Computed example of a mutant assay.
Amino acid sequence: MSFVTNKDGSAIQFEQLIAQFEEQGGDSPLLEHCVHFEDSGAVGRYGNLSLRSAFQPLFQADSMRAVAHEALLRVEDDRQRSLSPEQAFRTPKSPERIVHFDRLCRTIHAINFAAQAEPDAVLYLNVDGRHLLNVRGGTHGTFFEALLGHCGLRPGQVVLEILESRINDFDRLIEAIAAYQRRGFGIAIDDFGCRNSNFDRLWRLSPDIVKLDRSLIVQSTGNPRARKILPKLVEIIHDLGARAVCEGIETVAQHSLAVNAGVDMLQGYLYARPVDRLQHRPTSAVTGTADLYPPGS
């Protein structure tokens, strides 16, 4: 596979992109030669870790059309042992290396996405909360916007997913989100409904998208009270001016519950598992299931 051009024929400026990263890495051998290319696409290198991309589509609830793809990190060490993204993100310790590692992961995903995606396609990227706190002065997104430009992508094509419940410095979080939004990035609050999530924080953050934690749909499957609450949560999210995503859908019953609750987008293993190629259609049939849980049941 050639990673010289995007799908629309525009060039991905690899040399400029890598040079920009190497300049940021300084003289540390841990950060040198941080991007290379294999048949499967761009691969990041951080110490003894290899960083690759997998993509899972998000589907429009009313049409089951893929409207975006979330990039997920796949990590192996030199012994080809798999690490979870959580383990990998604990590797960098200093503020500078935390920022570098987070940017590196997002850039690898952007390269691999841009090489496959249609023009104006939308990419969801996770952002490490420590990165948000280590970048100061409202400059969030400045460096990454330049890197996206080398890939032929614009901030308006990128939605940054943030786990707000894990960030204690709420004022800094507000500052970071505002800075990203000023540059055109979309903001999604991830796993809403777990830990310390609450609507007061959501109101102050003004996200574009809210991704509901999988526990909400799981509880709704077996608990009639939770089933009645789910549509009300979605309604409040809509009242805030945001779109609602139900993630972690694994069964037809969960699909029906989410659709009947009025969510805008759906994501989960029922439709597609994460792979290195962009998928645009569900891998299983999910139509004709709305009568399993009629509205108000």
Results as ranks from 00 to 15, higher is better:
2 S>N: 14
6 N>R: 15
8 D>Y: 00
12 I>F: 01
13 Q>K: 15
15 E>Q: 11
29 P>A: 11
30 L>D: 06
32 E>M: 13
33 H>Q: 15
35 V>N: 03
37 F>R: 14
49 L>M: 10
60 Q>I: 09
61 A>E: 08
63 S>P: 03
65 R>D: 07
68 A>C: 03
69 H>L: 05
69 H>Y: 08
77 D>R: 00
78 D>I: 09
81 R>L: 07
82 S>Y: 10
83 L>A: 00
85 P>A: 01
86 E>N: 12
87 Q>C: 03
96 E>K: 15
96 E>Q: 15
96 E>N: 14
97 R>D: 15
99 V>F: 09
102 D>R: 10
104 L>P: 01
106 R>I: 05
110 A>F: 02
110 A>Y: 00
114 A>T: 05
119 P>S: 07
125 L>T: 03
128 D>G: 03
130 R>P: 06
131 H>K: 08
132 L>D: 04
134 N>I: 09
134 N>V: 08
138 G>H: 13
140 H>F: 07
142 T>C: 14
142 T>F: 13
147 L>M: 14
149 G>N: 06
149 G>E: 06
156 G>Y: 10
160 L>E: 09
162 I>K: 03
165 S>W: 05
165 S>L: 08
165 S>F: 06
166 R>K: 11
166 R>Q: 13
173 L>Q: 11
187 I>Y: 04
191 D>P: 04
201 R>M: 15
202 L>N: 08
203 W>K: 13
205 L>K: 00
208 D>F: 12
211 K>N: 05
211 K>S: 04
217 I>S: 00
221 T>A: 09
221 T>Q: 09
226 A>T: 04
226 A>M: 12
230 L>Q: 00
230 L>C: 01
235 E>H: 11
236 I>K: 02
236 I>H: 01
237 I>W: 02
261 A>S: 14
263 V>A: 09
267 Q>F: 08
271 Y>Q: 06
271 Y>K: 06
272 A>R: 01
280 H>C: 11
282 P>I: 08
294 P>V: 04
295 P>G: 02
